[in-house]
Nucleic acid binder design. Structure first.
Lengths: 124, 124, 124, 124
DNA sequence: GTGGTCTAGACCACG
DNA sequence: GTGGTCTAGACCACC
């Protein structure tokens, strides 16, 4: 379920966070379903439990999951998060578009590029 | 001319690189004009000369400037580089658009976002 | 494994880069195997860690290795890179040959020189 | 007669040395003919006379020219220098060939490359 | 422990 | 004066 790319420059805990955000936002992990325990996931990925702990803590802080002492961690997804996540993604688009504008790339070129992504191929 | 944002989590040398890229791409710094000397700029920004040195070295590697021992550093921007950089930026747009598609953001929303960047406001 | 020649006029970090390139290209350092840590190698060679750091950073930029904070640096060589490097080397040959031609050195002399390198002796 | 390329990374004095070596070895500057004075050449190229002085000193040390106080500098070319220069160039070929060998480029590829340089086009 | 950034200060080659 | 290399030592983020 979780894949770590050791060649990815980003820290491992960040990769884990993003992966869970993805699974939750897309509804693959249903609300109130249980996440793997810190210890189990750490063993499965053969990484340090501290790293998983850190990822879970951050996910809880962001509202994606909630933890109950002695029971485990659970998905706590709601509509608000989806909107938040969407906003984040749109900000990324905005940032890229501003960069393009700086490089004197025309609006048409940028939109053409976007259309190509949407129109072109089916989701892998 | 150069501003360092200490709240920015990115390294200082990266901020300097980006700032100069901007100035050069936009033509504010003309080709073959001289950049401030490593030491001067370091003093002006009250940071270590090594940090400036590093930024200049990277700018040279990327083809934005050329440096000559005992003479100084100079702008070296040409059309070829612009085309190369344009391609890089468009790839970034593509990546962001794919992300948006994954999160079920509609094509219209993305394009709307791009249009807002272009149409909305004058460059700050 | 790494030897520094202080009589060599080239900077230390460049010597280190070249040495590792050699070890990696020849397959003495296998893909995904770990390099000595920045600090260890610095101590072993009794030079400053910054100098090693610089060498590693450049090797990473060139695609020979990849580094991950908190984990270490690892060999990342692939066929694609080999082809790229080959092309670079052949361009160097070409440049040297053109120089020879300018100095009225005959084709035979140049080819003789090449054959001597290949045929003559086993790799030291 | 002498051209300085400010974008060339090599120091100016080195460019001047190489240029004169070329002119002398190829016989464009005849033995015992006079070189431009340090002062004149410096003015012509609008660079520091010290730089010319340094180039001339090095050329004298290498035996390409001789200077007479109060009279000027003169070409002192002889067969030995030609042989020396040739040897230098062949060493460069050798170095490049060894590099190629390291990168597992076959002898045939290298020789093919050399032949292309010789056979291909007329001297520019 | 690991890699990465930064500072302070030195020395070199070049003009 | 200029850029470039190196050392010594510090701090950070990550594991």
């Amino acid at each position: 379920m979780i894949i770590i790319d050791y060649k990815d420059r980003r820290p491992i805990y960040e990769q884990i966070i993003e992966r869970f955000q993805d699974l939750i936002v897309k509804g693959i992990l249903k609300p109130d379903s249980q996440l793997p325990s810190v210890r189990n996931l750490a063993m499965e990925l053969s990484i340090n439990p501290n790293t998983i702990q850190r990822a879970y803590a951050e996910l809880e802080r962001q509202g994606y999951i909630y933890s109950i002492k002695g029971r485990g961690s659970f998905v706590s997804f709601n509509e608000e998060l989806l909107i938040l996540k969407k906003k984040e993604v749109l900000e990324e688009i905005e940032k890229a578009a501003e960069l393009a504008k700086n490089f004197q790339i025309t609006e048409e070129e940028v939109i053409g590029c976007v259309k190509q992504v949407y129109g072109g191929e089916e989701e892998k």
